[in-house]
Design a protein around this nucleic acid. Sequence first.
DNA 1: TAGATTGTTAATCGATTAACAATC
DNA 2: TAGATTGTTAATCGATTAACAATC
Lengths: 206, 206
Amino acid sequence: MTPHRTIARLSLYRRLLRQADREGVQNLFSHELAKMAGATAAQVRRDITFVGHSGSPTRGYDVRELLDSIGTTLDAGQRQPVALVGVGNLGRAILAFFHGRHPNLAIVAAFDADPHKAGRVIHGCRCYPMEQMAEVVKGEGITVGVVAVPAEAAQQVTDTLVRAGVRGILNFAPTPLRASGGVFVEDIDMTMALEKVAYFARQDRS
Amino acid sequence: MTPHRTIARLSLYRRLLRQADREGVQNLFSHELAKMAGATAAQVRRDITFVGHSGSPTRGYDVRELLDSIGTTLDAGQRQPVALVGVGNLGRAILAFFHGRHPNLAIVAAFDADPHKAGRVIHGCRCYPMEQMAEVVKGEGITVGVVAVPAEAAQQVTDTLVRAGVRGILNFAPTPLRASGGVFVEDIDMTMALEKVAYFARQDRS
DNA sequence: TAGATTGTTAATCGATTAACAATC
DNA sequence: TAGATTGTTAATCGATTAACAATC
């Protein structure tokens, strides 16, 4: 069983719980967290059960303890270094977006076909030429790859990443990727998303 | 009935069909399109039925005609101007990504809290100060908004967009948005996506 | 205790998959 | 005709929602 939606929501809960913790909130009920997360109380309760945490009918969930439980599930306490391929506009925006935010999930290497980018450090991340991908991925113990190259190059980049040992890929290229050996692929297709929004914006659902 | 997945896949089919058309392919069977799209033949057939198109058991689907049918469903022949809010790293990458690609779905205005950005033209898109949002959205007949501001500002920006008449929002801010009146919201949460990939990369599914 | 919330099971919903008669 | 594909219906699957006994 792979509860995709639960994993996605846990990431959001964690952000909200950290915020609550910073504000000194010590306990939260399922309906309170649900409201913040745009979920239902039942979803929150089921998701929290999934991470092995328990609450109290009178006090709800302890914020700090719940953060620990979610962390155990999402991170497993492990550092998982990430590689980015494609240092164009989107790639640089991704580097900026993640820079310094995720200690356990940092982008530690970037690759680009343009040899002029090799050696530069962009948003705290060192750039390498494409040819060094296998070597750097293995050397740094990288297990997650982010693909931000044009559609034409995406499949080849993916194959190289997988051969180097990457086990999961976040794909921003507007094309479906094939990855073998149980490698997990998550697609973020911005064109698809925008066209979907445009379609439903036209439907009258008020 | 709102077949979210079908709408998303149609966007992908269209891209693949345009490519096939450019290469001179005139007909495609459901299993051929399915293979290209990473879908099943049954999904393709059902999706095509949804847009009101029919194929032939001997020749499959006519590429040009199918493109027309999908276009009718996705675009309705209408121009739907788009507004972007937040011209930071991510906002500029989004402008570059969509620039010149979608005649019916062009980003025609960008807004930013930094007054120094007003008046500039970035990747073909004119920037305005936040204060002019309602005015420009109404003037340009904008129906779709893209939110690329920090999480703290996202809800307020959304409220302003909705008040100005936007009917659909693509949200890149890492926070859930509330929109009333049947306004459609699609979230692209990159943090959530990366954490999901990291989680499933750790699971052994080979 | 009374009352609200938790954890969990059953019912529902939406989407996918399997199956097959109709078709070219 | 024989054979492969289409369009569509029934079965399955996964996730959400509703419901409720157990709990503090």
